[in-house]
Nucleic acid binder design. Structure first.
Lengths: 211, 211, 211, 211
DNA sequence: CATGAATGAGGTTTCATTCAT
DNA sequence: TATGAATGAAACCTCATTCAT
């Protein structure tokens, strides 16, 4: 995970990192409950069990904390999926893609609040911070696209727009978090995942008759 | 569209409705530029070319304006799609669905800012208002689901989870607005629409060999 | 007196001016008591008998109030002296200069606190504001210099460095305010003024023997 | 120069004095750049290359440092001028006074920032500290006055208000620092000094015809 | 004796909302 | 009815000072 370009007064890098991660962890909880603008510094400090001064020792502003929270979540997700992807057998693209989808969907199931929060609050970041955030998304997008291309090149998949398919997979994983109020009414997680995995693999299937 | 209940007694309901719609229109513009929390009443009043007192004559609070903005956008969308759907020939589900998708995607292309805004700011509404908002979504969901079921019943489609497919269609329409920073890099609107329409219709196709 | 380039929300110019002058008047009193940094907004508001919001309706920041206070004092002084100077008979430079010195010294006697305050707090203004402030000083400097040159041209004075003499006169007028802790120990105002007037006029005297 | 009383018991008085002078020296630099209130302890510590704890070991508060800075500058000036005055030949008051003026004006030319700073920030000291500061001024005042009286008694000068003349000399020396924004526009240091020296000596001259 | 992380009161400023005109 | 000046609570953030290490 990256370190954040924040205003810190301390030089003990290990301490800084530890405290920053602590603040990120606790603030995330506070933020997802009430949203960024509705959470005031007093609540953040309380959640962190730190004084205002201490929090401002490690972050320059409330906005910097927001950036750290969102960016950290993005990086962690990207690292996690990249790392998992590297364990997959590229010779079996179908199976690999299914595994990857499970991990991806599970992530957003386990981190529903953060996913939703990211969609809602990224707007409150300045443009350049926002673009930093998008990078993690692009990394994940590339990983998925990679498997699609792999499968296409090995002849197992037929996929014309791998970028679009990769995007749709991500979007549907996110949907489980950001549209839960609708989806939860009708589906449980396993059904949601299984159905989409099946539909996707089916649509990627090379039609025999075409050969 | 509804007239929003106001605190002050007013004789001229038509005037009230007109003024409210004016405020909704202008506030929407102001809100999508900077977000709900970042837009203050002064800016709203300026955008509306009205005094604070006047605005508060037609809405009880800033939050009520937010609710009106989001809810109004939702209702308009639902009305528009329901009305369009009613013109479609149910005997040709494939063609009808394609037409509906185009209208749906076009709506979110034309109203990108509002779609994104809705995702971001619905959180700032109280629970019951939020649920009101979801209603419009459900109406649209039903319309789409209706065509899928129609197609299934007529034997043209094979669709196991019409609710899920309907949801995915909506989600992908929204994606064009809420993920534009990614999608716009690679696709134009027509490609995005065409590809998804094709993939969907294909996946709904009754496989002949199965018969 | 100039109007200040401040952030105001109101458009009723007369009201704005009236309220600004009220705030300037009351803030001056508050500032000279404890100094700029030691006077907080709560005290300023109390002195103005206004709420914080109201004060910020007419000034954009505490610093803008400081600027207005200092700049207003400077302008008033310059206007007052210019106006008085214009009543003086240029044909009697000696008498005119003496009158002008009295008015100048009296001003700083009557406004000791403000004179001292100006020396102390001008530093807290941004560079360009500071330069605006210096303008009033220059106007007064010019007025005094004018009489010296007049006297020289009419042959009544012998003055080699009118700019320097004009400056010294101002400085000694200010001294009565900014060094009162020392001067008051030994002199009263009239003595201070009379002695300096006499010394100056003497030193400007054309020595007969030289002719 | 004095050692400032500190709260902690310290065995090594020499070390204490050395550290205090170090802090005074570095803080002076920091203070004159941004002013007392605008310079925070972090900046002071950085300028001193010491930790906050260390600085607080040698001074009880930020205000005490301010006092030390101003008071130290005053003492140094007084000591310097007293010491220089003691080398002057009292039998030649005219020459002596001219020499003393040069040293005085040069001091304030060399320490412009500190002179200005003293005028600006003495206000931030408590009353009794302020009076301590004035003492140095009085010492210098006495030295100058002494030469004037000497000259009067020896019959070389005619001076009716030696206290006032002494004060004016000091004020004009300070003016070079505190009014530099105006004076520097028109004069260089040597002209400023020479003109004032000449004018003064002239005005002190015993008029022969009077005898 | 030195460090510098931590404290938390208090600073300036904003803003939704009201109400006298 | 319409206005917009006024309110004042509460927001974010800073900073002199302390004290455990």
């Amino acid at each position: 995970m990256t370190t954040f370009p924040i205003r810190t007064f301390s030089k003990d890098e290990a301490l800084v990192k530890e405290r920053q991660e602590h603040i990120i962890r606790r603030s995330t909880k506070a933020f997802v409950k009430k949203g960024f603008s509705q959470t005031n510094m007093r609540e953040i400090c309380k959640a962190c069990e730190m004084s205002a001064g201490a929090v401002y020792h490690y972050f320059g502003s409330k906005e910097e904390i927001l950036y750290a929270v969102i960016s950290s979540a993005g990086s962690k997700q990207a690292e996690y999926l990249e790392s998992f992807a590297s364990t997959l057998d590229k010779k079996e693209p179908g199976r690999a893609l299914a595994s990857l989808m499970r991990k991806l969907f599970e992530w957003h199931n386990d981190n529903q609040d953060v996913t939703l929060f990211t969609y809602q609050e990224t707007r409150n970041l300045p443009r350049d911070a926002r673009e930093q955030i998008f990078e993690s998304e692009c990394r994940i997008h590339s990983v998925i696209e990679g498997f699609l291309i792999e499968g296409a090149e090995s002849g197992e998949f037929r996929v014309e727009e791998p970028k679009l398919v990769a995007h749709d997979i991500m979007m549907l994983a996110h949907a489980w978090a950001i549209r839960r109020w609708l989806l939860r009414k009708y589906f449980d997680f396993e059904t949601y995942l299984a159905t989409h995995t099946a539909v996707l693999l089916k649509s990627l299937q090379r039609v025999e008759a075409e050969g």
